[in-house]
Write a protein that binds this DNA or RNA. Structure first.
Length: 712
DNA sequence: GAACATAAATTTTTT
DNA sequence: ATTTATGTTC
């Protein structure tokens, strides 16, 4: 039964699906059926007789790839055997592992996760004797941030620092030294970090012509999702895989670029037509996800952006309900109100069709407590990941030692559980094992009986069959007493996590694949959306997903936008796009919470807040405002008559860049202004009658007394 | 000299 | 809650 493309797709989508030859760039606005387009294109290719094994689908998460492949199979009515799908990182990992010797790892390599990388930074820093006793010395996380940012943006640390972390300049020389040491350490210990996966693949493709040709021949059709969030190396990899007249389809939305902090380069998507000669550009602008009132609001968010996006989404989905902005009295009552709202929404929607979104992982903690108390199940995306939990890493460290006795990080973790053994002793033991110093080993094992047990256990493990599940089972038993000792409070919960790990392991026969997958995308909870559980997610992790009802919390300054992003205009712009992504996740119902005060752990008290600039700048007619009354309920505030003006366009995108800048009458007298030194800026808040918070391009946000400003 | 205990400070986003 | 710096103990 042939697929009915005529009825299933709109014109633009159909064009994207049926243009199979040559490069294609699809600019897909939020909710414009991007996934649908990819899925139908997969199906179309196969229906045309393309061997599924000749298709490569690169996405942002493996979950996304899997979902798309599954949907394509459903449409086709038969399995897509051999299609490669996954993230850039997982594709790179697989390819590199097959060609390890070619990139200088004759004995294979170990993939590190973030924590591993940080620990090596610290190790290197300590070995170089840098920053001893300096309280303000950059932390290991900061060090690694600078190193990876420098790599991802392919600019020297100095440049990154100058632009985004000027306060760290005194440590520039140190950082360069640490960066060199870090790279050296990795090479010595056959370790590879996330960035290496991409750079090594790029290098491999560049240098190994036969392999390049082979891959180009194999992958005749390449599709890349979320192209706006790729960085320079990723673009090069795509280019190399595609070959001269490659059939590449890149899909993305410049307005949804939210990974610049990780080196993503929006320029990639803008340059696509240049880099891939003769590329066709197709725009998807009709939104099938959200009701028009939500789109009116999200269009306003984009209207305030410094870079004007050539977008004005429209929808045929009507609703007479406006999005709501709710002002709870504090973040505590916010949690309670959100629970109330969820209970209310539950009457209309399934729990897993309701999501609460926030800027940072920790912001959901009060809500998690409140939900647990009332007995509503939830599923959290973002924040701490499964494989990052201490107990999981503990167990995996034994597994890693079975695989690779040279894995220093694993030794450090495993030996840490032995009483009387600290960092220094670990270093000595590691050295002794390496050099075969049996005298020292005899001495030290005599001194620490548990160490002998550990070594015996490891030997035992090495001799049994190398199936992840079998090994893990034994390790779990060995680890059991340590677990109870280490986590007396919550070990049952952690134990359950370990059992889950065993389950995952059962589906693997290859150890390295198992470990790699776990580091690359391994949150088993993510695999399936729990039924009957409300979704809590960071905005980043919510990318590409949608829910009938969405509640965004903590929309106050310093939280959303994040405090760290308030300094630089560029970062604030990314926060705005993040806000855009958050709001466009909602299909029917959107609620934004602006607590009037938030708990401050430094003072132990609640501090008053300023509403997020993204809320303040919204014209009053795109939302309803609700205040929490002191009794705990909500009361609707009517907008002052002077604030209301004609309703925004419900029109089709005839005038896409329908000038918000010029046409927006400003209800709060916010707008643009001029300053003698900083030049023209956009007023984003007015905390006091004579004080303005102004965003000056190039200078960032300043709070300025009205007398010094010329209002425009 | 090294490990352990305690106090203090600090929290963006992710492959 | 987690990590780091410092002080105390072996």
């Amino acid at each position: 039964m042939p697929i009915d493309f005529e009825n299933e797709l709109n014109e633009a989508q159909r064009e994207a699906v049926q243009t199979t030859e040559g490069p294609v760039l699809v600019i897909a606005g939020a909710g414009s059926g991007k996934t649908r387009t990819i899925v139908y294109r997969l199906a179309h290719l196969v229906e045309q007789g393309v061997d599924p094994a000749q298709i490569l689908l690169l996405t942002f998460t493996r979950k996304a790839a899997q979902e798309m492949l599954n949907r394509a199979e459903t449409i086709l009515g038969r399995p897509l055997t051999g299609t490669s799908g996954g993230t850039f990182h997982s594709f790179a990992y697989a390819t590199l592992r097959r060609n390890a010797a070619d990139i200088g790892f004759e004995n294979g390599f170990t993939l590190m996760d973030r924590a591993d990388s940080e620990n090596i930074c610290k190790e290197v820093k300590d070995n170089l004797k840098l920053g001893k006793g300096d309280r303000s010395y950059p932390k290991k996380g900061t060090l690694l941030d600078m190193i990876t940012k420098s790599r991802n943006k392919e600019a020297p640390i100095e440049v990154i620092m100058e632009k985004e972390a000027y306060h760290l300049s005194p440590y520039l020389d140190d950082m360069n030294e640490i960066a060199t040491g870090y790279a050296h350490f990795k090479k010595q210990h056959a370790l590879v970090d996330y960035d290496d996966l991409l750079f090594l693949l790029d290098k491999l493709l560049e240098e190994n012509e036969p392999l390049r040709n082979q891959l180009q021949a194999r992958y005749r059709y390449i599709m890349v999702d979320e192209y706006q969030d790729t960085n320079l190396v990723q673009a090069r990899i795509v280019k190399q895989l595609a070959g001269k007249n490659g059939n590449v389809m890149a899909v993305g939305d410049d307005a949804q670029s939210i990974y610049a902090f990780r080196g993503a380069n929006v320029q990639n998507i803008l340059d696509f037509p240049k880099i891939f000669d003769g590329g066709k550009v197709i725009r998807l602008e009709q939104n099938y996800r959200s009701v028009q009132p939500i789109l009116d609001l999200t269009n306003e968010i984009l209207a305030g952006a410094a870079t004007k996006f050539d977008k004005n989404l429209y929808s045929d989905l009507k609703s007479d309900k406006l999005p709501e902005v709710v002002y709870p009295l504090s973040d505590q009552t916010q949690a309670r109100l959100v629970v109330d709202q969820i209970l209310e929404l539950k009457k209309k929607y399934l729990l897993h069709d309701i999501a609460v979104l926030f800027r940072a992982g920790y912001q959901s903690f009060p809500l998690e407590v409140a939900l647990t108390r009332i007995g509503i199940d939830y599923q959290k995306y973002g924040g701490i990941r499964f494989h990052e939990a201490a107990h999981v890493k503990d167990v995996l460290s034994y597994l890693r030692l079975v695989l690779n006795p040279h894995d220093l990080l694993a030794w450090q973790r495993a030996l840490d559980h032995i009483k009387g053994v600290g960092p220094k002793t670990v270093a000595k033991i590691y050295q002794a094992i390496h050099s075969g110093d049996e005298k020292y080993m005899a001495k030290i094992t005599k001194k620490h009986e548990p160490l002998r047990e550990l070594l015996n256990e490891l030997n035992g493990l090495r001799s049994i069959e190398r199936r992840p599940a079998a090994l893990l089972e034994r390790i779990s038993a060995f680890y059991q007493p340590i677990l109870i000792e280490k986590y007396p409070d919550d070990y049952p919960k952690r134990q359950a996590g370990l059992e889950q790990l065993n389950q995952i392991a059962a589906s693997y026969s290859d150890m390295e694949q198992f470990l790699g997958d776990l580091s690359l995308d391994g949150d088993p909870e993510d695999e399936k959306r729990k039924e009957n559980a409300v979704v809590l997610s960071t905005v980043h992790s919510a990318k590409g997903l949608e829910w009938s009802a969405v509640i965004i919390i903590d929309l106050v300054e310093d939280r959303f936008p994040s405090r760290k992003a308030m300094q630089r205009a560029e970062d604030l712009e990314e926060e705005r796009r993040l806000m855009y992504v958050a709001c466009t996740r909602a299909k029917e119902c959107l609620k934004m919470m602006v607590p009037s005060s938030v708990y401050n752990r430094a003072s132990g008290m609640s501090d008053p807040t300023l509403p997020s600039p993204f809320i303040l700048e919204l014209p009053n007619n795109v939302f309803d405002k609700l205040n929490e009354s002191y009794g705990g309920g909500l009361e609707k505030k009517r907008h002052a008559p002077s604030n209301s003006y004609t309703s925004p366009s419900y029109s089709k995108p005839s005038s896409t860049t329908q000038n918000h800048a010029a046409a927006k009458p400003d209800p709060k007298q916010l707008g643009f202004c001029k300053h003698k030194i900083f030049g023209k800026g956009k007023i984003i808040a007015r905390p006091e009658p004579n004080k303005y918070k102004v965003n000056f391009p190039g200078f960032g946000i300043k709070t300025i007394i009205g007398d010094y400003l010329e209002l425009l």
